Amino acid sequence: MNRLNAVVALIVLTFANVGPSSARDSGSTRPQSVAGVFDYYLLALSWSPTYCLTHRDDAQCSGKGYGFVLHGLWPQYAQGGWPKSCAPRVKLSPQERAKGLMLFPSQKLLEHEWAKHGTCSGLGAIGYLEASDKALGAVRIPEQLQPLSSTHYFSARDITQMFRQSNPGMADDGIVVICNGPQLSEVRVCMDKNLAFASCGKGVKTQCRAGEIRVPPLR
C-alpha cells in the first residue's frame, strides 16, 4: 500500500510540474502584439453594396453610391495571424478623425480600424492614415468593377484576374477574394511595408464558393 501511494504521489507531482510549463512553452511561440512588429500589410477593400444589404442604417449606406470602400490596412505576420490592439491605445484627435473620414466610409469603422489595426502599424495615427491613403492610391479598380447599376456575376478567379490586369506587378498570390455567402464581400491585396505589391503570407486565401458569385449593384 505504501508503494502504491508513493507511485500515485509521483504521478501527481509529475503532472503538476509538466502541465504549467507546457502551457507557457506553447504560449511563448505565439507572436506578441507589438506596434511596428509585423511582416507585411493586407489592404482590405469592401464591396459596399453587399455590406449595405445587411447594414441599411450604416452611414455608408445612405445612397452615397459607393462601390469598393476601404475596410482597413492590416499589419500581418508572414507565418499567419496578425497583431491587434497594440499599446499605447491612443484615441484619434479631431484633426486625425477628420483626415480619416476622407478615407473610411464611416466614423465607426475608422475608429475601430485605428484601435484594432492602426495602432499596430507603429506609424502613429497620421502616419497610418497616410499609409492607408497611399495603399488605396496604388490599387486601380478594374473597369468591370466600377460602381454597377445592375447585378453582375463573376467567378472569384475572374475578379483576381481583372485586378492583376489592371495592376501590373501584382503578384499571382498577392490578392484574394472574400465572399459573404453567394455574394462578393471583399478583395484583399497584399503589400510590403513600403506598400508595393507583395505575396500574401500563410493563411490568406480566397474564401468563396466555386462558380460564379453575385456582385450586387449600387444602393
Rank of each mutant, 00 (worst) to 15 (best):
L45R: 13
L10T: 11
N5F: 06
L53K: 06
L148P: 00
D172L: 12
K91H: 07
A138N: 08
S85D: 12
S199Y: 03
T206M: 04
S199E: 03
P83I: 15
G169H: 10
D172P: 00
K99C: 01
H117G: 01
L136A: 09
S166Y: 11
Q146G: 00
L218T: 07
I11D: 07
L195W: 03
C52P: 00
D158W: 13
T206A: 03
R3S: 10
V69H: 09
T151L: 12
L42K: 13
G137D: 06
F68M: 08
K99W: 06
C208W: 01
A23E: 12
T119C: 06
P217Y: 05
L4E: 00
L53G: 00
I11H: 10
G169P: 03
F38L: 09
E143V: 15
Q32V: 15
L70F: 10
S33N: 13
D158K: 14
Q207C: 01
R188Q: 08
E96F: 01
I159L: 15
N17C: 15
P217T: 07
A156F: 14
C200D: 04
S48L: 07
T54A: 15
L148S: 14
P182Q: 06
P105V: 08
V189S: 03
S93P: 02
S22C: 09
A23S: 12
L123Q: 11
L136N: 00
Q183T: 04
D158M: 12
S106K: 05
A44C: 07
R157A: 15
G137R: 11
I126G: 02
L129M: 11
V69S: 09
K202I: 03
G67Q: 09
K99R: 15
K205V: 09
P49N: 09
